[in-house]
Design a protein around this nucleic acid. Sequence first.
DNA 1: CCCTTTTCTTGACTGAGTCAAAAGAAGGAG
DNA 2: CTCCTTCTTTTGACTCAGTCAAGAAAAGGG
Lengths: 146, 146
Amino acid sequence: METTWAQHLREAGLRVTRPRLSVLDVLADHPHADVDTIVTGAREQHPSLSPQAVYGVLTAFVAAGIARRIEPAGAPALFELRVGDNHHHLVCRSCGAVADVDCAVGAAPCLSPSDTAGFVVDEAEVVFWGLCSTCLSRKHEEEHPA
Amino acid sequence: METTWAQHLREAGLRVTRPRLSVLDVLADHPHADVDTIVTGAREQHPSLSPQAVYGVLTAFVAAGIARRIEPAGAPALFELRVGDNHHHLVCRSCGAVADVDCAVGAAPCLSPSDTAGFVVDEAEVVFWGLCSTCLSRKHEEEHPA
DNA sequence: CCCTTTTCTTGACTGAGTCAAAAGAAGGAG
DNA sequence: CTCCTTCTTTTGACTCAGTCAAGAAAAGGG
């Protein structure tokens, strides 16, 4: 797998380093990981890895277009490797879990607000807020104990 | 105007206090204000007002449903009085300006993702990213000086 | 193998927001 | 009108995510 990652990095114009490979591995395992998760995970392969290095790696990934940063309100930023397909996210209000959703109403429907107030729009970001199935059943049990 | 605000607060089940009236005034003038703007503005009427009080006031407003908190990625939270009509926002990548947009494709179209992955969705939040007209013309001038 | 450039490490720092205790107002009861 | 209870505001310490900068280390072309 690492060979592929190295290639992936080179194609994006980035040098191949151990911190970067470790971060890619963690992101492959955790499709919506926050910095803390990435640091912890990447340290299994590279124990001396510093949080700042992870910030640097992620900034480079986002700049090179091989990762995307998402920032749900009220939570630390998350990073994902799925880029370039304009998908959106479901976020659980209770536990913060994130799931991907393909664009809701066709190709890129939300990219056309009715009145753009003079703005030139280049991206529409959609976040669906709700409860994930786990939190739903937990909540249901609490309210109606068996 | 303040009489109306007082009534508005009471109807929402909140006590009428000077900090709250001042914050309402600022929000009426600045429909998408951050905490700093609100503190500065409200101090014209109430010089001793502390930032923490403003946080408290805004938390109470949001809990009572008379204000809404929006958190564009990479910027401090903004507050608006326009609530309950499911509108969305245009955000300028360059200056952070925010404008309202009515829901893009009808009533609440985005509330129907194709596959909810077991989530029960209660809100769809849409952010349109782009450049506002001011930043556009400024950028144009910089690239093609007269 | 060396040299230049990029990346990582270390550590200090900022800014938004939270928490908690005590002082101070709001508004209902008498 | 005054008192009393409850809710707000003040003050000040604190947390957490993220940034900045300088020197050490590694990547990879010559």
